Simulated scan of single mutants.
Amino acid sequence: MAAITFKENPVTLLGSEVKVGDKAPDFTVLANDLSPVSLQDSKGQVRIISVVPSLDTGVCDAQTRRFNEEAAELGNTKILTVSVDLPFAQRRWCGDNGIENVQTVSDHRDLSFGKAYGVAIEELRLLARAVFVVDSSDTVTYVEYVKEATNHPDYAAAVDAAKSAK
């Protein structure tokens, strides 16, 4: 797996790297109301899974807002933003920022998503910044592990991949 840094310091990622062509691993995270959410809940749709360390930081805020804006152009696409922020904090953040087109979900309980997609940072118990596109048949069609966790992902490439996925 490619080396990932957080504020220019190398970090250890738990789990296995996901690659284009893989069957998307399932996971269980929590919605803002504490109900479980899994990949299978959006079966039959294209999914963009936007992974951020914490919604209360500048780049994570911008990333989630950007995908919220892009959602209107994407039709049959579900957008999930995954972080280890508590569900209550995610709900507050979405309400404060008018986020309605992206579903924020929390991996705080057991890092199910983080370990399944190889983005759980062992040293910090945060998730590394990444974007995955999963098609309607649960095949991964796009992967970006952002090399420096404080940098932005390639939004255009992810949106193009979602538009191309079926």
Rank of each mutant, 00 (worst) to 15 (best):
D56E: 12
L126N: 05
G44K: 02
N151Y: 06
G75K: 14
S112L: 10
T150V: 14
E148L: 04
E123A: 02
V102N: 07
R91I: 02
I48M: 10
N76S: 13
I49L: 03
S112Q: 11
D154T: 12
D138Q: 15
K43W: 01
Q40L: 15
K43T: 03
D135M: 04
T141E: 01
L127P: 03
T64V: 13
R65K: 14
G44N: 01
A157C: 05
D135L: 12
T81V: 12
C94M: 09
R66L: 09
P53I: 01
S112D: 06
S106E: 03
G98C: 03
Y142Q: 03
S38M: 14
V131I: 10
E123Y: 02
T104N: 09
Q63T: 15
A130E: 03
L126Q: 08
E144R: 07
E73D: 15
D85Y: 00
A72G: 15
A162D: 10
T141Y: 00
Q63G: 11
S54Y: 07
C94R: 09
A62L: 14
G58L: 03
E73P: 12
V84H: 03
K115S: 11
V46K: 15
R66I: 05
D138N: 15
P53H: 03
Q63R: 11
D41G: 14
D160G: 09
G98Q: 07
E100N: 15
A130T: 01
C94A: 13
N97Y: 05
I48T: 08
N97F: 05
A161H: 14
L127N: 02
T150H: 09
D56R: 00
S54L: 11
G95W: 11
P153F: 10
P153L: 10
R109S: 11
T104G: 11
I79W: 00
N97Q: 08
I79Y: 00
V143C: 09
V82E: 05
A116G: 05
D96P: 06
P153C: 10
V84I: 09
T81W: 07
K43C: 00
K78A: 12
A157Y: 01
Q40V: 13
E100H: 14
D56V: 01
T141R: 04
D96S: 07
I48L: 12
R65Y: 11
N76P: 15
T150A: 08
T64R: 05
T141D: 01
A128C: 05
V140Y: 08
K43L: 06
Q90T: 00
R125Q: 06
K43G: 03
A158Y: 04
Y117T: 04
N97V: 02
A62Q: 14
K78S: 11
K43A: 10
V146D: 06
S38Y: 12
S106N: 02
V134I: 13
D138E: 13
R109Q: 10
E122H: 13
